[in-house]
Design a protein around this nucleic acid. Structure first.
Lengths: 137, 137
DNA sequence: CTTTGTGCAAACGATTTGCAGGATG
DNA sequence: CATCCTGCAAATCGTTTGCACAAAG
């Protein structure tokens, strides 16, 4: 665990982010899970046992982590931002009727290259959003 | 123009939506533009000359249109829902740094089939979200 | 005439902000 | 020790809701 922590610290330093206990906790929490939690879910999780971070701090940590590319913001439901630490890339399906979200395995689609994008933009990742109707609708 | 209007009316009826002036106006407005306006932009546009619709009505019209599949909800910026009337499909690029959004032409990527999705879900469309860094970041 | 939509204003909920300490590099 | 982060509470902003009235089929 000590080793894990050092990796995280070094990753943050490499991105020129100040290493604070709260920022560390937010990033470590995201690295430890495979879902895409909301800011509030992270906050609740962190403060489960002892209070460690305040709401505004979690939001600002997430923003900092996102800007340097360590964390991805996932927009699937209106008005709600979810986050993940880019482990396990995958696509998403969303029912246009009830709004339910479902993960789609990465290898469901043949992968394609990002050549052909206009010069100037540097792509780092992509995902496919499929929209349609689910079983129950 | 009369003909156009009838098409819209019939489209709404075909989806079993009651045809009201406000709902008509919202859908017609979306059909007339190629960007993805927010609810508020549509509201402002509709009431530019004379007041035609109220805020709550635009929101509910958009929701009704979306549920029957006439209008698509586009989620690109946190906390903001944009809408389009599925003319001119395209992909999106988002800068992870400054959040700028840019359209990507549809034929930038080779299109792929949606076979391989688990049975039960009925896909209707898809789009690719590319994330990376833009020129200025 | 039954059902559904409209408009208004108030309510809501996720996120942001201002500011005064406090910690980091 | 200059800079950036934290915490708190209040503010903001897009969206939703409750309710009385009006309109659609």
């Amino acid at each position: 665990m000590k080793k894990e922590a050092n990796i995280i610290v070094n990753t943050l330093k490499a991105k020129k982010l100040r290493v604070t206990p709260q920022r560390f906790a937010v990033y470590a929490n995201l690295l430890s899970r495979t879902d895409h939690p909301t800011a509030e879910q992270i906050l609740t999780d962190l403060n489960k046992n002892a209070p460690t971070s305040s709401q505004a701090t979690v939001y600002s940590a997430l923003q900092a982590l996102r800007q340097v590319g360590l964390v991805r913001e996932v927009l699937l439901e209106p008005g709600i931002s979810r986050y993940d630490a880019n482990i396990d890339p995958h696509h998403h399906f969303r029912c246009r009727c009830c709004g339910v979200i479902e993960d789609i395995p990465w290898d469901t689609f043949e992968s394609f290259n990002l050549q052909g994008l206009r010069p100037g933009i540097t792509p780092e990742r992509y995902e496919v959003i499929v929209e349609g109707v689910c079983d129950r609708c």
